[in-house]
Amino acid sequence: MPVLSIENLSYAYPNAETPALNDVSLSVNKGEFVVICGPTGAGKTTFCRCILGLIPHFFGGDMSGKVIVLDTDTRDIQPSRLAAKVGLVFQNPEDQLIAMSVEEELAFGLENLGLPRDEIKKRIDESLNLVNIVELRDRPPSELSSGQQQKVAIAAVLAMNPEILVLDEPTSMIDPKSALDITQFLNKLNKERGVTVIVAEHRLENLVSFADKIVVINKGCIVQTGSPREVFASDNLLEIGVAIPRIIQLASRLKKAGIKIDNLPLTVEEAFSILRRAL
Protein backbone atom coordinates (compact mmCIF):
# COMPACT_ATOMS: atom_id res chain seq x y z
CA MET A 1 0.00 0.00 0.00
CA PRO A 2 1.80 3.13 -1.11
CA VAL A 3 1.52 5.98 1.37
CA LEU A 4 3.46 8.19 -0.97
CA SER A 5 3.29 8.15 -4.72
CA ILE A 6 5.32 10.61 -6.78
CA GLU A 7 4.65 10.55 -10.52
CA ASN A 8 6.78 12.41 -13.01
CA LEU A 9 7.36 15.32 -10.69
CA SER A 10 9.22 18.30 -12.10
CA TYR A 11 9.64 21.58 -10.30
CA ALA A 12 11.39 24.91 -10.69
CA TYR A 13 11.55 27.59 -8.01
CA PRO A 14 10.19 31.01 -9.02
CA ASN A 15 12.77 32.90 -11.11
CA ALA A 16 15.07 29.89 -11.24
CA GLU A 17 17.06 29.17 -14.37
CA THR A 18 17.15 25.42 -13.96
CA PRO A 19 14.55 23.05 -12.54
CA ALA A 20 15.24 21.73 -9.06
CA LEU A 21 13.56 18.42 -9.81
CA ASN A 22 13.32 16.68 -13.15
CA ASP A 23 10.76 13.99 -13.87
CA VAL A 24 11.06 12.28 -10.53
CA SER A 25 8.99 9.21 -9.74
CA LEU A 26 8.96 7.24 -6.51
CA SER A 27 6.66 5.03 -4.54
CA VAL A 28 6.91 4.49 -0.78
CA ASN A 29 4.93 1.84 1.07
CA LYS A 30 3.54 1.99 4.56
CA GLY A 31 6.17 1.31 7.20
CA GLU A 32 9.14 1.66 4.88
CA PHE A 33 12.39 3.33 5.93
CA VAL A 34 13.66 5.31 3.00
CA VAL A 35 16.98 7.17 2.82
CA ILE A 36 17.45 9.88 0.23
CA CYS A 37 21.03 10.79 -0.54
CA GLY A 38 22.87 12.98 -2.98
CA PRO A 39 25.24 15.93 -3.08
CA THR A 40 24.35 19.43 -1.91
CA GLY A 41 21.96 21.06 -4.33
CA ALA A 42 20.75 17.78 -5.77
CA GLY A 43 17.18 18.44 -4.75
CA LYS A 44 16.79 16.62 -1.43
CA THR A 45 15.29 19.59 0.41
CA THR A 46 13.04 20.38 -2.54
CA PHE A 47 11.91 16.77 -2.52
CA CYS A 48 11.01 16.94 1.18
CA ARG A 49 9.08 20.14 0.64
CA CYS A 50 7.04 18.52 -2.12
CA ILE A 51 5.97 15.68 0.13
CA LEU A 52 4.59 18.18 2.65
CA GLY A 53 2.84 20.25 0.03
CA LEU A 54 5.01 23.25 0.91
CA ILE A 55 5.72 23.03 -2.77
CA PRO A 56 3.63 24.30 -4.51
CA HIS A 57 1.59 26.13 -1.85
CA PHE A 58 4.23 27.87 0.26
CA PHE A 59 6.94 28.33 -2.36
CA GLY A 60 4.97 28.86 -5.56
CA GLY A 61 6.97 28.14 -8.68
CA ASP A 62 6.38 25.78 -11.57
CA MET A 63 5.27 22.28 -10.70
CA SER A 64 4.18 19.45 -12.98
CA GLY A 65 3.46 15.84 -12.26
CA LYS A 66 1.72 14.46 -9.21
CA VAL A 67 2.49 13.97 -5.54
CA ILE A 68 -0.06 11.76 -3.82
CA VAL A 69 0.31 11.51 -0.06
CA LEU A 70 -2.04 9.16 1.79
CA ASP A 71 -4.44 9.20 -1.14
CA THR A 72 -4.48 12.99 -1.34
CA ASP A 73 -3.02 15.02 -4.16
CA THR A 74 -0.84 17.70 -2.54
CA ARG A 75 -2.16 20.27 -4.98
CA ASP A 76 -5.68 19.88 -3.66
CA ILE A 77 -4.90 20.45 -0.01
CA GLN A 78 -3.24 23.13 2.11
CA PRO A 79 0.03 22.09 3.80
CA SER A 80 -1.44 22.81 7.22
CA ARG A 81 -4.03 20.11 6.58
CA LEU A 82 -1.44 17.59 5.52
CA ALA A 83 0.64 18.47 8.55
CA ALA A 84 -1.62 16.40 10.76
CA LYS A 85 -0.52 13.27 8.92
CA VAL A 86 2.93 14.05 7.60
CA GLY A 87 5.61 15.63 9.77
CA LEU A 88 8.75 17.47 8.66
CA VAL A 89 11.92 18.00 10.70
CA PHE A 90 14.35 20.59 9.36
CA GLN A 91 18.10 20.70 9.10
CA ASN A 92 18.73 23.67 11.39
CA PRO A 93 17.76 22.65 14.91
CA GLU A 94 17.36 26.13 16.35
CA ASP A 95 15.49 27.89 13.56
CA GLN A 96 12.52 25.53 13.56
CA LEU A 97 11.73 26.04 17.25
CA ILE A 98 9.44 28.87 18.17
CA ALA A 99 8.45 28.60 21.82
CA MET A 100 9.88 29.64 25.16
CA SER A 101 9.78 26.20 26.69
CA VAL A 102 9.97 22.66 25.39
CA GLU A 103 6.48 21.97 26.68
CA GLU A 104 5.08 24.93 24.75
CA GLU A 105 6.99 23.83 21.68
CA LEU A 106 5.31 20.45 21.74
CA ALA A 107 1.96 22.09 22.41
CA PHE A 108 2.19 24.42 19.42
CA GLY A 109 1.25 21.98 16.70
CA LEU A 110 -1.47 20.42 18.84
CA GLU A 111 -2.93 23.84 19.62
CA ASN A 112 -3.00 24.52 15.90
CA LEU A 113 -4.98 21.33 15.37
CA GLY A 114 -7.54 22.55 17.88
CA LEU A 115 -7.25 19.48 20.10
CA PRO A 116 -8.77 19.64 23.59
CA ARG A 117 -6.46 20.53 26.45
CA ASP A 118 -6.27 17.16 28.16
CA GLU A 119 -5.51 15.46 24.85
CA ILE A 120 -2.69 17.95 24.34
CA LYS A 121 -1.32 17.22 27.79
CA LYS A 122 -1.46 13.49 27.17
CA ARG A 123 0.34 13.75 23.87
CA ILE A 124 3.03 16.02 25.28
CA ASP A 125 3.75 13.52 28.04
CA GLU A 126 3.85 10.64 25.57
CA SER A 127 6.09 12.42 23.12
CA LEU A 128 8.57 13.54 25.77
CA ASN A 129 8.79 9.95 26.94
CA LEU A 130 9.07 8.53 23.46
CA VAL A 131 12.02 10.71 22.52
CA ASN A 132 13.49 10.39 26.01
CA ILE A 133 13.67 14.08 26.84
CA VAL A 134 11.33 14.24 29.83
CA GLU A 135 13.87 16.19 31.87
CA LEU A 136 13.88 18.98 29.28
CA ARG A 137 10.19 19.80 29.67
CA ASP A 138 10.52 23.26 31.24
CA ARG A 139 13.76 24.33 29.60
CA PRO A 140 13.94 27.15 27.07
CA PRO A 141 15.02 25.67 23.74
CA SER A 142 17.62 28.41 23.26
CA GLU A 143 19.54 27.01 26.23
CA LEU A 144 19.76 23.52 24.82
CA SER A 145 22.54 22.03 22.74
CA SER A 146 21.82 21.59 19.04
CA GLY A 147 21.43 17.85 19.51
CA GLN A 148 18.85 18.38 22.23
CA GLN A 149 17.08 21.00 20.13
CA GLN A 150 16.76 18.56 17.28
CA LYS A 151 15.27 15.96 19.61
CA VAL A 152 12.77 18.57 20.76
CA ALA A 153 11.88 19.30 17.14
CA ILE A 154 11.31 15.61 16.51
CA ALA A 155 9.18 15.31 19.65
CA ALA A 156 7.15 18.34 18.62
CA VAL A 157 6.41 16.81 15.23
CA LEU A 158 5.72 13.33 16.64
CA ALA A 159 3.24 14.73 19.16
CA MET A 160 0.99 15.27 16.16
CA ASN A 161 1.01 11.50 15.49
CA PRO A 162 1.99 11.62 11.83
CA GLU A 163 1.87 8.49 9.73
CA ILE A 164 4.85 9.63 7.72
CA LEU A 165 7.89 11.36 9.19
CA VAL A 166 10.10 13.27 6.79
CA LEU A 167 13.49 14.57 7.96
CA ASP A 168 15.68 16.90 5.92
CA GLU A 169 19.32 16.31 6.91
CA PRO A 170 18.43 16.15 10.59
CA THR A 171 21.95 15.36 11.77
CA SER A 172 24.15 17.54 9.60
CA MET A 173 24.38 20.38 12.12
CA ILE A 174 24.53 18.49 15.39
CA ASP A 175 27.13 16.56 17.35
CA PRO A 176 27.81 12.90 16.44
CA LYS A 177 26.50 11.43 19.69
CA SER A 178 23.13 13.09 19.32
CA ALA A 179 23.17 12.14 15.65
CA LEU A 180 23.64 8.51 16.60
CA ASP A 181 20.87 8.72 19.21
CA ILE A 182 18.49 10.19 16.70
CA THR A 183 19.35 7.66 14.02
CA GLN A 184 18.74 4.78 16.39
CA PHE A 185 15.54 6.41 17.57
CA LEU A 186 14.25 6.69 14.01
CA ASN A 187 14.84 3.00 13.55
CA LYS A 188 12.93 2.19 16.72
CA LEU A 189 10.11 4.48 15.66
CA ASN A 190 9.92 2.77 12.32
CA LYS A 191 10.23 -0.86 13.42
CA GLU A 192 8.19 -0.66 16.62
CA ARG A 193 5.56 1.87 15.71
CA GLY A 194 5.26 1.41 11.99
CA VAL A 195 5.84 5.07 11.19
CA THR A 196 6.99 5.50 7.60
CA VAL A 197 10.33 7.29 7.75
CA ILE A 198 11.84 9.28 4.89
CA VAL A 199 15.26 10.79 5.70
CA ALA A 200 17.43 12.91 3.45
CA GLU A 201 21.00 12.52 4.69
CA HIS A 202 24.72 12.82 4.01
CA ARG A 203 25.98 10.87 6.99
CA LEU A 204 25.02 7.41 5.86
CA GLU A 205 27.19 5.28 8.08
CA ASN A 206 24.85 4.42 10.90
CA LEU A 207 21.71 4.86 8.89
CA VAL A 208 21.90 2.44 6.01
CA SER A 209 21.54 -0.71 8.05
CA PHE A 210 18.02 0.42 8.95
CA ALA A 211 16.93 1.39 5.46
CA ASP A 212 14.58 -0.60 3.27
CA LYS A 213 15.27 1.59 0.31
CA ILE A 214 17.95 4.04 -0.76
CA VAL A 215 17.15 6.73 -3.30
CA VAL A 216 20.07 8.55 -4.92
CA ILE A 217 19.35 12.00 -6.31
CA ASN A 218 21.70 14.05 -8.44
CA LYS A 219 20.94 17.32 -10.23
CA GLY A 220 17.23 16.93 -9.70
CA CYS A 221 16.95 13.42 -11.08
CA ILE A 222 16.69 10.08 -9.36
CA VAL A 223 19.82 8.24 -10.36
CA GLN A 224 19.25 5.03 -8.50
CA THR A 225 16.77 3.27 -6.25
CA GLY A 226 17.05 -0.02 -4.46
CA SER A 227 18.03 -1.81 -1.30
CA PRO A 228 21.23 -0.57 0.37
CA ARG A 229 23.32 -3.46 -0.90
CA GLU A 230 22.03 -3.03 -4.44
CA VAL A 231 22.69 0.69 -4.51
CA PHE A 232 26.11 0.66 -2.93
CA ALA A 233 27.34 -1.97 -5.34
CA SER A 234 27.58 0.71 -8.01
CA ASP A 235 30.85 2.41 -8.60
CA ASN A 236 29.86 5.88 -9.61
CA LEU A 237 28.27 7.01 -6.36
CA LEU A 238 31.48 8.50 -5.00
CA GLU A 239 31.94 10.54 -8.16
CA ILE A 240 28.46 11.95 -7.80
CA GLY A 241 29.30 12.91 -4.26
CA VAL A 242 27.53 10.31 -2.17
CA ALA A 243 29.51 9.31 0.90
CA ILE A 244 29.40 5.54 0.73
CA PRO A 245 30.21 4.26 4.24
CA ARG A 246 33.85 3.35 4.41
CA ILE A 247 33.38 -0.26 5.43
CA ILE A 248 31.29 -0.76 2.31
CA GLN A 249 33.92 0.90 0.16
CA LEU A 250 36.52 -1.37 1.72
CA ALA A 251 34.46 -4.47 1.02
CA SER A 252 33.93 -3.42 -2.60
CA ARG A 253 37.62 -2.85 -3.15
CA LEU A 254 38.50 -6.18 -1.59
CA LYS A 255 35.90 -7.93 -3.73
CA LYS A 256 37.38 -6.40 -6.86
CA ALA A 257 40.82 -7.53 -5.76
CA GLY A 258 39.54 -11.07 -5.72
CA ILE A 259 38.88 -11.58 -2.03
CA LYS A 260 35.85 -13.67 -1.29
CA ILE A 261 33.32 -11.13 -0.02
CA ASP A 262 29.87 -12.70 0.12
CA ASN A 263 27.90 -9.56 0.72
CA LEU A 264 28.33 -5.84 1.25
CA PRO A 265 28.42 -5.19 5.02
CA LEU A 266 26.08 -2.64 6.48
CA THR A 267 27.33 -2.88 10.06
CA VAL A 268 30.69 -3.42 11.71
CA GLU A 269 29.49 -6.81 12.91
CA GLU A 270 28.68 -7.93 9.39
CA ALA A 271 31.97 -6.58 8.09
CA PHE A 272 33.90 -8.51 10.69
CA SER A 273 32.11 -11.79 9.98
CA ILE A 274 32.55 -11.40 6.25
CA LEU A 275 36.25 -10.70 6.57
CA ARG A 276 36.74 -13.52 8.99
CA ARG A 277 35.23 -15.91 6.52
CA ALA A 278 37.28 -14.50 3.69
CA LEU A 279 40.64 -14.73 5.44
Binding site: L180, I247, F272
Partner: peptide, 15 residues
Protein backbone atom coordinates in the same frame (compact mmCIF):
# COMPACT_ATOMS: atom_id res chain seq x y z
CA UNK B 1 35.50 12.73 25.06
CA UNK B 2 31.94 12.27 23.88
CA UNK B 3 32.97 11.35 20.36
CA UNK B 4 31.58 8.61 18.19
CA UNK B 5 34.02 6.10 16.73
CA UNK B 6 33.54 5.72 12.99
CA UNK B 7 32.70 2.23 11.75
CA UNK B 8 36.09 1.73 10.13
CA UNK B 9 37.82 2.41 13.45
CA UNK B 10 35.70 -0.16 15.22
CA UNK B 11 36.31 -2.66 12.45
CA UNK B 12 40.06 -2.03 12.42
CA UNK B 13 40.24 -2.66 16.13
CA UNK B 14 38.37 -5.93 15.84
CA UNK B 15 40.43 -7.05 12.88
Amino acid sequence: AGLVEPQLFQLARRL
